[in-house]
Amino acid sequence: MNDSAHNTPSEQPKRTGMRALATAGDDGEFSVIAAIGGVRGVIESMLPGLLFVVMFICTSDLRMTVIASAALAVIQVVVRLVQRQSVMGALGGMIAVAICLFWAWKSGEARNYYMYGFITNAVYIVLLLISMAVRVPGLGFVIEFIRSLPTEHFKAWLNGWRTDKALYKAYAQITWLWIGLFALRLIVQVPLYLTNQVGWLGTTRLLMGIPFWALAIWISYLIVATPMHYHRLEEKKRKEAAEQ
């Protein structure tokens, strides 16, 4: 069984995140594991955070914890470079970890390692709520943008999927789903931050990270797969009719 650790440079990178949803109907296949970055991607994304919380609980030494977590994030990128693997995911993760570590380091409080996550979740909630208010479901916008980049006739592209009632409804549902996910993270984790329970905060952050993301992507796929399939069939028919 092949995984990302055995890919050659000539192989196409696996589709992850929203791109996996946007292209799910192209070949009729969808893999949650691939969508969240594969087994290696999951391990790489969780390790720095896991190391941070475990080391801090065991040592209470913020300086040592920050240095060790930063070193691990850098090593992950270097290993991918040596193996001639794609480093974009690992690099993005390293940057996010660096921001979190810097915040904790400068403030002198381990709990501030998680502040960046609170801010990003809050920003996502606000943006998605605005998208629902203007009747352009944010998840639908992202998925359709990835699926068919509107290089011209933006209004026609926008109306093309918004006027498909079944597809619009599906996109609205998954947008609310993701709003709920981001909100639940804040509801659970912010009280732990305010009471300075770093151990529990780190644990819930890990549990509500990749596992929740995987579940949300899977449910999103179940909701949008059928209306997206029929929408593409209609697009194909219209295109063929226009060419005749």
Score class of each variant (00 low, 15 high):
223 I>K: 11
59 T>A: 03
79 V>M: 09
217 I>K: 06
92 G>H: 08
153 H>N: 15
14 K>Q: 12
227 P>C: 04
61 D>W: 14
182 F>E: 02
112 N>W: 09
21 L>S: 03
186 L>T: 06
11 E>V: 13
59 T>Y: 09
161 W>M: 01
98 A>T: 13
191 P>R: 04
53 V>F: 10
50 L>C: 07
155 K>M: 14
11 E>A: 11
39 V>F: 14
27 D>P: 04
169 K>M: 03
9 P>W: 05
173 Q>Y: 06
37 G>D: 04
129 L>T: 11
74 V>S: 07
233 L>M: 13
161 W>I: 02
158 L>H: 15
238 R>V: 00
157 W>V: 08
212 F>G: 00
79 V>C: 05
189 Q>C: 15
85 Q>D: 10
237 K>F: 11
32 V>W: 14
222 L>D: 03
97 V>P: 00
113 Y>P: 01
85 Q>C: 07
146 I>E: 08
13 P>D: 04
117 G>S: 05
182 F>R: 02
121 N>F: 01
86 S>H: 13
132 M>L: 15
241 A>S: 12
106 K>W: 14
61 D>C: 08
120 T>M: 14
74 V>A: 13
8 T>N: 05
173 Q>V: 10
47 L>R: 10
7 N>M: 09
47 L>I: 14
167 L>A: 06
144 E>K: 09
139 L>Y: 02
187 I>D: 00
81 L>W: 08
199 G>Y: 10
113 Y>Q: 01
211 P>N: 06
28 G>D: 12
166 A>Q: 14
206 L>I: 13
214 A>C: 08
105 W>E: 03
80 R>P: 06
8 T>L: 10
59 T>Q: 02
64 M>I: 15
190 V>I: 15
220 S>Q: 03
27 D>I: 05
19 R>S: 13
55 M>L: 15
237 K>N: 07
4 S>N: 15
124 Y>P: 00
10 S>F: 11
186 L>N: 03
58 C>H: 13
163 T>A: 13
167 L>H: 08
119 I>N: 00
238 R>E: 04
78 V>Y: 08
206 L>W: 08
58 C>W: 15
144 E>H: 05
70 A>P: 04
170 A>S: 12
119 I>H: 02
